[in-house]
Amino acid sequence: MQEYWIRWESWMKQYAPGLLTILQPGASFEAVASLEKLINATLPASFKAFYAVHNGQVKARTGLVDADQLLSVADIITQWHHWKDLLDSETFTYNEEPIFSAPDTGIKNDWWNPLWIPITSDGFGNHLCIDLDPTPEGQPGQIITLWHDDAHRAIVAPSFEDWVKDYLNALEKGDYIFVKKWGIVHKDTFLNYND
């Protein structure tokens, strides 16, 4: 997984060298183990190898993933607790019935599932998640969308490594650009302006 960071950092050096300063040092074995203990599940080996190089990014206005922050392990834990508190307080129920999502095939129809592990954040309650509890049609470790106010749940990639690889391929192809106010954004997004 280190090769992916080499490619990503090489892109940053060329197009957005300031982003290199928001990369965190690698996550410790203990930090990742504490996350796995919290969720009572094993994270994909590719995630652990990727985070051993850089533990996501520091909290900043600019994001590394289409304007979203790549969460550190500590921030993943914080977001997970936020969603778990909402689940435990029955926020995702109405008249004592569960509120269901509208997922792609392969994703459970929960509004949120404790085995959906947030890895990015837009700061408004929306994430990409590692799905460790798919339906039989899905793949453990697939990357899915989680919206706080929209029922749709989509599969973005079949695995964490595929997600990283696809994102970096698109980055190097020129599908994403750096915008000072937001960070790395898709070239066709409404965020693609400089003011």
Rank of each mutant, 00 (worst) to 15 (best):
C129F: 02
F50K: 13
Q14D: 10
F92E: 09
G141T: 07
N169G: 03
F178A: 09
G56V: 04
I6P: 10
D162A: 11
I177A: 01
K59F: 13
D110G: 14
V156E: 07
W5H: 00
N113V: 00
N126F: 01
Q14R: 09
Q14W: 10
T189N: 07
N169S: 07
P158Y: 08
G56S: 03
P136G: 00
L115D: 01
V53W: 03
D131A: 01
V65D: 15
G18L: 05
L115I: 05
V179S: 08
A16Y: 03
M12S: 10
Y94W: 14
F124D: 14
P134L: 07
D175L: 06
Q14K: 10
E90A: 13
D150G: 12
W112E: 02
D66R: 14
N113C: 06
I107D: 04
L191D: 09
N40P: 13
T62E: 01
K173I: 09
H82K: 12
L86F: 00
A157Y: 02
S10L: 10
G63V: 09
W80S: 11
D175R: 09
P140L: 02
T78E: 11
I22C: 11
V65E: 12
I76T: 07
K181L: 05
I184C: 01
N95D: 14
S89R: 14
D122V: 06
T78K: 13
W112V: 05
W5K: 03
E9C: 10
Y4C: 05
L70S: 03
F124V: 15
K59M: 13
I144G: 11
Y51W: 00
M12C: 11
Q57W: 05
F190E: 12
H54G: 02
H148L: 04
K13P: 08
I77M: 12
L23S: 04
Y15A: 07
L43N: 02
I177R: 08
L146S: 13
L171D: 06
V156T: 11
H54N: 00
E137W: 05
R7N: 08
K187L: 09
L191I: 07
Q69S: 14
E97I: 13
L132H: 04
A49D: 10
W182S: 11
A151S: 14
W147K: 14
N194V: 11
V185T: 02
A45M: 15
W5V: 01
K181V: 08
R61S: 05
L43A: 05
W80I: 11
T62S: 06
N169V: 05
I177N: 00
A67F: 15
P136F: 00
T91G: 10
S34W: 07
A33C: 12
G174A: 06
L115E: 02
L128M: 15
P140D: 00
Q69W: 12
A67T: 13
Q142C: 00
I6L: 09
G183K: 03
D166I: 06
I107H: 04
H82V: 08
R61H: 01
I107E: 04
N126T: 04
T135K: 14
H186S: 09
F29S: 14
D104F: 01
D75M: 15
P25Y: 13
T189V: 04
G125T: 12
Q69M: 14
N95L: 11
P44H: 02
K37N: 03
K37A: 02
T145W: 01
L38T: 15
V58H: 14
V179C: 09
A157L: 00
G56T: 04
L146V: 09
A154M: 12
A170K: 06
R153I: 13
Y51P: 04
